[in-house]
Simulated scan of single mutants.
Amino acid sequence: MPSFLEAPVAGAYHLLTSLVSTLQPLTGAYAAVIAIVLCTLVVRLCLVPLSVRAHRGLKARAAMMPQLKQLTERHRGNPERLQRELAKLQSESGTTMFAGFLPTLAQLPFFWLMYTLFSRTIVAGESNQLISGSLLGAPLGVHWPIVAGTPAFLVLAVLLAVVAWFSARLQLRQLDETATPMSRRLARLLPFGTLLTAAFVPLAAGLYLLTTTAWTVVERTVLQR
């Protein structure tokens, strides 16, 4: 790992281990699990302004769909003119085609930190204390082949599937009548990608995925009201 990335990893490690030590008298063996959930909730709380902006962007984009369709049909034979007109329309509306991805992109550094912290035996020049935490008998630093021998992965997979199902329903509800069959198929299937991701990352990172996707479902439900 490049040396400039060691500083944030070490900082996150000391922060998380301090939180685990604080929680341990109250939560015992599940201190690391609770710490991961709490850190994830804090991250998502900090990203609420981005989520609100993304939601407004999606609503603005939905309102622009008739105009986007007209521009596409009008300038189908002139890609350069089409790009200029689309850029002008987005500028006037104050949104972009990628507005809905802002919260997801902002979370990537935190997911990377969680993956890194529970994938290494040595962090910040000392033995990694975090990987000794466990969930239902499975160490938080292990991957799917080992976790599958305990209830932990099954419970995680079931909960991720339930959250993905609700997420898919929300995404389908956001699509309008202009959505293509492919778009509807993707909206139905993409949320279940968290199950595939969880199979290749440490259990701690899977727990982060479960917490953040559950937050996303609740957040989108509230914002859509």
Rank of each mutant, 00 (worst) to 15 (best):
L47M: 09
V162H: 04
E85W: 02
V20I: 08
V33W: 00
L105D: 01
F4Q: 14
G28L: 09
W165A: 12
G94D: 05
V37T: 07
L156H: 03
S91M: 14
P79V: 10
E73H: 08
S3Y: 09
Y208K: 04
Q70K: 09
R61P: 00
A148R: 05
V147H: 06
S119K: 08
A10Y: 05
V37S: 00
L23Y: 11
G206E: 01
L160T: 01
L15N: 10
Q107S: 07
T27K: 03
P66L: 08
L105G: 03
M182I: 13
Q67I: 09
S183I: 06
Q83F: 08
L82P: 01
L47Y: 03
H143K: 13
Y13I: 09
Q107D: 02
L159C: 07
V52H: 10
V142A: 06
L41T: 02
A12F: 12
A60E: 00
S183Y: 00
A31T: 12
L108I: 14
Q107H: 06
W215D: 05
T211P: 01
E73W: 00
W215A: 00
F110Q: 00
A161N: 02
H75L: 13
E73Y: 00
A161M: 10
E126Q: 15
F110G: 07
P66A: 02
T212Q: 05
L26M: 13
A32H: 05
L5C: 13
L82T: 03
E6A: 15
T216R: 12
F98N: 02
G133W: 00
T40E: 01
F166E: 09
R220G: 14
A214P: 06
P2F: 15
S3L: 11
G133K: 03
Q83Y: 05
L68C: 08
V218Q: 04
Y30K: 08
P49R: 12
R225S: 07
R220Y: 11
P79Y: 09
L102N: 06
L154K: 08
V42A: 15
Q171E: 13
A214D: 04
F166K: 12
E177G: 12
P181Q: 13
A35T: 08
L210W: 08
T104H: 03
E80M: 13
Q24N: 10
R184H: 14
G77F: 08
A138E: 02
L135D: 04
Y30R: 11
E92A: 15
